[in-house]
Design a protein around this nucleic acid. Structure first.
Lengths: 240, 240
DNA sequence: CGGTCGATTGATGCTACTCAAACTTAGTGG
DNA sequence: CCACTAAGTTTGAGTAGCATCAATCGACCG
């Protein structure tokens, strides 16, 4: 089952009891398919469900007045795309499928009931949103104080480790069916500039990215270039 | 009492019962003073407490290898500076007092006990961290897709509304004893450039900022310039 | 009164944006 | 199986925004 990957991911942070696993399982229903470029959650809407991404990539998208687009979060399989909406109301941004994706919808009332009965699971879900915030802060650092190359390098290191922890990457390779335009909207740069930086990373033998398949050829160099320190991803066991 | 401002802030999001208010009060002890530029929480440490800022301004600070500094969050009075550390372990950044500040230390075991007994308060505290993340995302949008002037305008609008909601600002004026260098580290630009943008905002009659006292002279123009939409701050009553 | 910190100003160069066009690839229908 | 189309990638040229370096000025402090 695809949702088991999520349970597996949580249990890597803290061991789960059978009761807790059952409680999580009771949240899930069969996934829905969303094709590339489809809007999963509309800006301004008040969703009654949160979305667990089980396959594909999704992005939180903010649109600015001049038509510019900024992606503020990259959702990978195993991510709760919008646990936030459990606590907030109207969406101030939209969630868009960046490629063909599969999503399990989890009703908010089920989640709210979970918070009444399972404090430890609640803290684990809370922790998911807190790690998301830590990732946000790293993106702020990237955009504020890293060079273009450093920014992309950091993003690729981060994405690889997150995917690996979710069981969707190994040997420095992963599926990455994202357009350069979307990548540019993630990095907050023009598509032209993103393209040139990618060419440089390729020419320097750091990455390969063809046919939707991304490979990190020189992890150590990429890590140094992006000043990447994975502490903030909290991939190790925690005390919750 | 200074911590009552925090309770007042939470209760504006959702009405609190007397029991809940008592529970919150039991968390607090007298504040500690931190003078400007003091480190409140060190990078790499594993704090056993979370910090409630009751007076002053603090920043989450990330330092990059070339000596550059990026402030990823601006803490204002009434903010829990580091609720995150309840769920995470080693700090991947530091928290620094940007001016003389007063902080109440709340032990994590008290907070963890709260999450066992008060699900609704738990969700409200969770919501605090979720709003922080929403602010992070707006900063990402600022850095990615707004001009320098837009970025500063957005920051000033955001800061004013947050301060006003916490009872620390009115009539478009507030105390802002922050150096331009710190502002530049917030905005992710050089101090020289921040200075020139400030001069422009002053020359255009949008702001006044002298003797630590900040005044927004033209709210509507500043709001338009920064494309500021306060939805994400969730200052209105929520269903929790 | 010298020293330090922050604000300000000027000059220079790089980074990244914009506009525009060519090219490549994948998908579609005849 | 091949034209046709649409979407995405790549390239070139010109330009704006912002960084960097360096120096000056003012305020506060021991």
């Amino acid at each position: 089952m695809t949702t088991d990957a999520f349970i597996e991911k949580l249990s890597r942070r803290a061991p789960l009891t059978n009761d807790e696993i059952d409680c999580l399982r009771s949240l899930f229903s069969p996934p829905k398919a969303f094709s590339a470029k489809t809007e999963v959650i509309a800006q301004g809407s008040r969703p009654g469900v949160s979305c667990l991404l089980v396959a594909g990539y999704c992005g939180r998208v903010n649109t600015v007045e001049d038509g510019g687009r900024q992606i503020t979060q990259l959702g990978i399989p195993g991510d709760f795309l919008d646990l936030h909406s459990l606590l907030l109301d109207a969406m101030d941004h939209s969630v868009v499928a960046l490629c063909d994706s599969e999503i399990v919808m989890v009703p908010h009332d089920k989640l709210r009931r979970l918070t009444e009965t399972h404090p430890r699971l609640t803290r684990l879900l809370w922790m998911e949103t807190v790690v998301d915030a830590a990732i946000h802060r790293q993106w702020i650092v990237s955009k504020g104080r890293r060079t273009g190359l450093g920014q992309l390098s950091h993003l690729f290191c981060e994405t690889y480790l997150r995917l690996e922890a979710a069981g969707h990457a190994s040997d420095f390779g992963f599926e990455f069916p994202i357009s350069q335009t979307d990548l540019a909207d993630i990095a907050g740069m023009s598509a032209v500039h993103a393209n040139r930086l990618l060419q440089q990373l390729r020419a320097d033998g750091l990455i390969r990215w063809t046919a939707n398949c991304f490979t990190i050829l020189a992890w150590d160099e990429l890590r140094v270039l992006g000043e990447f320190d994975p502490t903030y991803l909290r991939l190790t066991r925690a005390r919750v």
